[in-house]
Write a protein that binds this DNA or RNA. Structure first.
Length: 306
DNA sequence: TGGGAAAGCAGCCCTCCATG
DNA sequence: CATGGAGGGCTGCTTTCCCA
């Protein structure tokens, strides 16, 4: 028998999903005004919502600066939970809206993002819509977009420099920093003395990671030699794990046996790639829009750890 | 130009009460 | 006991203004 007199009072706090959605938008956009545009509210409404959320939690979530806002450590902590709660909420709505949905959806994803994000997205989608068949193609972004335009795919994920992809009808779902990687524990000077060319493992011609990496090296006047080329992320990572060369991948792709090389390595800084989602909308095929929601939510999740 | 505060307003929701 | 309508309070929004 539980003696209720010794129990601490239950907290009355709750986290309204509306406010969490605004919170996620503000944290990602770094602005209450921009967040307001995204959630269809005014800047003042966003400001008040965030103030109420902070009061509810008794924690400061944002550092307010002159023209921007940024997350406090408590805000960072909440962000992960908020994204998971919103994902579950959206999944539940989608599942209840059309639990008996059937059909086939053709999804295209670049190889490196397929490895990281697809398993979770596909398993959640299959649990919610077991009667929908999903066919996945792994190809470079440009090829996927061509297949989408030809009607051979229903939706695809593509990487690019943001503005271009959005002009092509894509919806931005994430920004992913590129990083130099080497074998875990690698002392870079053992394979590169800065006079000889830097040994590189890179993706195929036409890959954005490759182009940006080579441009950054050119700009920094660092000679290089392509010692390994592949279309497969798995092969690139395996080559890197050999400890004989370095490569460039999205931060989310760094796996066991590899480590990101910081600025102390002497390698030039790299930009971030924009990840966009492109959909051939078809009102007669709701499964396409549903899978698009799941993919988008998958990219909103924290990067799965190794 | 963007965030915060105050005032005013609309709509939601809870409570109460009548009705079947 | 369930349901539906009325009334009042509360919540959350927009507008406006001020400050950095």
């Amino acid at each position: 028998m539980i003696d209720e007199k010794v129990l601490p009072p239950l907290p009355l706090n709750h986290l309204p999903l509306d406010a969490l959605r605004t919170f996620v938008a503000a944290s990602e956009l770094g602005s209450f005004t921009q967040a307001g545009h995204q959630v269809h509210r005014t800047q003042s409404a966003v400001s008040m919502q965030m103030k109420r959320l902070e009061e509810e939690l008794g924690r400061r979530l944002f550092e307010r600066k002159a023209r921007t806002v940024s997350l406090t450590p408590d805000g960072e902590l909440l962000l992960g939970y908020a994204k998971r709660m919103l994902r579950l909420h959206d999944e539940a709505l989608a599942s209840l809206a059309a639990p008996e949905m059937t059909g086939q959806v053709r999804l295209g994803v670049p190889d490196d993002y397929a490895t990281r994000y697809l398993p979770g997205v596909l398993s959640r989608f299959a649990r919610s819509f077991p009667k929908v068949r999903v066919d996945v193609w792994c190809r470079p972004s440009n090829e996927l977009l061509a297949h989408l335009a030809a009607g051979e795919l229903d939706l695809c994920v593509a990487t690019g420099d943001g503005a271009d992809r959005v002009k092509q009808g894509g919806k931005m779902v994430s920004r992913m920093p590129l990083v130099w990687i080497g074998a875990k524990g690698l002392a870079l000077e053992t394979i590169w003395n800065k006079q000889d060319p830097l040994p590189l493992a890179v993706f195929h011609e036409g890959c954005l990671h490759r182009r940006w990496a080579l441009e950054a090296l050119d700009k920094a006047d660092i000679p290089f030699r392509i010692a390994f080329g592949s279309m497969s992320l798995g092969a690139i990572l395996a080559a890197v794990r050999s400890g004989l060369l370095v490569s460039v991948v999205a931060r989310s792709s760094v796996d066991q046996g590899c480590a990101a090389l910081g600025p102390e390595s002497g390698l030039p800084p790299l930009p971030s790639v924009t990840v966009t989602l492109h959909v051939n909308e078809d009102p007669k095929r709701p499964a396409v829009a549903c899978l698009a929601q799941f993919v988008e939510a998958g990219f909103a999740e924290p990067v799965p750890s190794n």
